[in-house]
Design a protein around this nucleic acid. Structure first.
Lengths: 337, 337
DNA sequence: CTGAAAGCGCTTACAG
DNA sequence: CTGAAAGCGCTTACAG
C-alpha cells in the first residue's frame, strides 16, 4: 500500500486524510461531518481515504473546539443501593438518545466527597444530575457558582436555580395509611429510614398528616435502609402493640418479614406489612408484599428532560413531583381482633 | 473591584490570570500544576488572581493537550440487573482513587449496540471495561483495531489481546453439587439462565462435570434470569422427580420458592433450593437461602487493576479467575426419603 | 529561573 | 463552491 501516506507512528488525523485525498482539511472536516459538499468526487475521495487509513475522530479535540463535552455527569450516593440503578437506567436511555453520554460517580454517601465530585465534574460536563444529594443546603448553595446547569432528584433546593424532580412519597404514604385504615387498623408502626434521608423525612410528614386525618395512631422507630435494620427494629414496634407496619423500603420490610417468621407470627393475619419501592422480588415474597411503587426510571427520564431543557433554553425548569402508587398484594389484611 | 481584568463574558482562562497577576501564561500553568516555581512572590500573585477570578481549569482543553482523557469507559448489558451495580461499585472506588473517571453506558442487552458503544467510547476513553459482553466472538475480534486497551469480565476471549477477569462459577457449581450430594440428593434440577449467557454455559459445564464425578443425575431446563422465570419453570423440574434445585441466580431461586409456597411444598424438607449470587435479601428469605456467593465488587476492582496495569506497562495482563464460595443457610437439607 | 512561542486536532468564519 | 488561516485553552520544549 505505497499510497497510504500516514505520518508514521501517530494516529490518523484529518491532516492525513487531506493529504491522501488531496484536498484541504476544511473539506475533510465538512465531508466527515455531513455538511453539504458540492463535488461528490471530492467527498468520495475523502471517505475512501478515511476508511483506508482507519480514521477515528479525536473526540476530545472536537469537544474542545466546540466548547461542549456532550457529557452529563451523574452523582449517586451509592450505586449498590437498588434504587439508583433504575434511575440511571431511565436516564441512560434518554441521554444516549439525545447524543450525550453519562459520566457516573459514586459519592459513597459522603457529603463532602459529593461536593468535591460535583466541582470536578463541572469541569468536564455540560450538565450535572445530582441524585438524592446528601450535602447540606449551604453546600448546595455554592453550586450555582460552578456555572453548570444542575438538576437534583429527591431533594428540595429552596430558591436555588436548579431543576428538581422528586417522587411524591408523602402521597404514597397517605395511600398506604388509607389502605390500612380502611382494613380497620387503628395503630400503625413505621420502621423509618436513616435520619439523614430526605425521603424518610417526607414520608414521616405524609405519615403524621394522614394518620391524624384518618384518626389512626402511629408509633415509629428509626431503623435504617437494610433488611438487617428491619429485622433488628421490628420487635420495638411489636412491643407497642401495632397491628400493621410500614417500612422505609422493601429491603427493611423483608427484614421485618424474616423476623416475623422467626417469631412464628403470620402475615397478614397477625400483622400487616407494607413496603416502599416495589423491587422486583416484592411480588415473590412470602407473602407477596403490599408496597408503594416508586417510578424510578421515570424519575431518571424526567431529570434528563429538565436538564435538556435547561441546556437548550437556558431556563431553569419547574419543580416536578412524580406520583407514587400503592400496589396491594397479600401482606395486608384486617387486624386480628 | 476595578483590578479584576477579565475578558468580558467569557469564562476565566489562564490568560486572564496571567494578565491580572502580571506574569506569563507559562508561569500560571506551572503554578497551578504545582510545578517548582522559584519566585514565591509570583506564585502567590498567581494563586490570588486565580481565586479572585474564580478560575476553574478547562479540563477538556487540558485532556486534549495532554492526549489523555483520564476517563475509563464501562459497558454493561443492563444496569438494572443487580449484578452489575456491585461490579461498578468496586470499579468506581478503585478508578477514582487512581484519578480516573468512569463513563458508564448500558447496552440494553443488545449485542449490536454494544459493539457500537465500544467504538464510540474508544474515541473518548483511555481504556474500556466490557462487562459480560454479549457480542459475538467475531465482533470482539474487531475491537483490538480501536487501539484502546480493553478488559473483559465474565468472558473468555480466546487469543484476543484483552485482559480478562472472571468468576469461577463452575467451581461454585461444583461446591453446590457436592453439598447436595453429601446431604444425600441423587437427582438434582437446574433452573438455567438465558441461553445467551456465558456464565450459564460455564455453570452448566461445572454442573455436568461435577454431577458425573459424584454420581448424581441432573435434569435441567432453560429458565431465564428473573423471578418470573423461576416461578414459571420450576414445575417442569418437579415433574422429573428432582429432590433439589439449583437456580441460575437468586432471583430465579426466589421465584422457585414462591412457586413452592403456592404448591404448599416445604423447603427444605420436601425440596432443597440453592441460589447463585448471594444478594442482600438472600439471608432474609423464608427459608434463608443457601447460595453461591460471587465476589462482584472484587471483580470490579480486579478489572481496573488489569486495565491500569495495561495502561502503565502496555502489557496485556494474565487471565484472572476469582473464586466463588457456597454459603450454606437453611434452604437445603437431606431429601425426604 | 521566567517568558515567548509552538502546537495538540479539530471547526469555522473568512477570502478567493 | 473550496482552501488557507485563525483559534479554542492548555502544556511544554526552547530561548534568553
Amino acid at each position: 500500500m505505497g499510497r497510504t501516506v500516514t505520518r508514521s507512528g501517530k494516529r490518523t488525523t484529518i491532516v492525513d486524510i487531506a493529504r491522501q485525498a488531496e484536498v484541504s482539511i476544511s473539506t475533510v472536516s465538512r465531508v466527515l461531518n455531513g455538511r453539504p459538499v458540492a463535488d461528490e468526487v471530492l467527498a468520495t475521495r475523502v471517505r475512501k481515504a478515511a476508511t483506508e487509513l482507519g480514521y477515528r475522530p479525536n473526540m476530545v479535540a472536537r469537544d474542545f473546539r466546540r466548547g461542549v463535552t456532550s457529557t452529563i455527569g451523574v452523582v449517586v450516593p451509592d450505586l449498590a443501593n437498588p434504587f439508583f440503578p433504575h434511575v440511571l437506567k431511565g436516564l441512560a436511555e434518554e441521554v444516549s438518545a439525545g447524543d450525550h453520554r453519562l459520566l457516573v460517580v459514586d459519592s459513597g454517601e459522603d457529603a463532602d466527597q459529593e461536593l468535591q465530585l460535583v466541582a470536578q465534574l463541572a469541569g468536564s460536563c455540560d450538565g450535572i444530575i445530582l441524585c438524592s444529594p446528601r450535602m447540606s443546603q449551604s453546600s448546595l448553595a455554592t453550586l450555582p457558582a460552578l456555572g453548570v446547569p444542575i438538576v437534583c432528584t429527591n431533594r428540595s433546593v429552596g430558591d436555588l436555580p436548579f431543576g428538581t424532580v422528586g417522587i411524591d412519597s408523602a402521597a404514597g404514604m397517605r395511600q398506604a395509611i388509607a389502605h390500612l385504615a380502611e382494613l380497620g387498623h387503628r395503630h400503625i408502626g413505621y420502621l423509618g429510614g436513616p435520619g439523614t434521608s430526605l425521603s424518610d423525612g417526607l414520608r414521616r410528614e405524609g405519615l403524621s398528616t394522614a394518620a391524624s386525618e384518618l384518626g389512626v395512631k402511629v408509633s415509629s422507630t428509626e431503623a435504617g435502609s437494610t433488611s438487617d435494620d428491619g429485622h433488628a427494629k421490628l420487635p420495638e414496634l411489636l412491643d407497642q402493640g401495632v397491628t400493621a407496619v410500614i417500612a422505609f423500603n422493601d429491603l427493611v420490610a423483608i427484614g421485618a418479614l424474616a423476623r416475623l417468621r422467626e417469631l412464628e407470627m403470620d402475615v397478614p393475619s397477625q400483622l400487616s406489612v407494607v413496603g416502599f419501592d416495589d423491587i422486583p422480588v416484592a411480588a415473590f415474597l412470602g407473602p407477596p408484599l403490599t408496597t408503594v411503587s416508586l417510578p424510578k426510571e421515570e424519575l431518571g427520564r424526567r431529570a434528563w428532560a429538565g436538564l435538556h431543557q435547561q441546556l437548550e433554553t437556558g431556563q431553569v425548569p419547574q419543580e416536578e413531583l412524580l406520583p407514587a402508587s400503592l400496589v396491594v398484594r397479600h401482606s395486608t389484611a384486617a387486624p386480628a381482633d
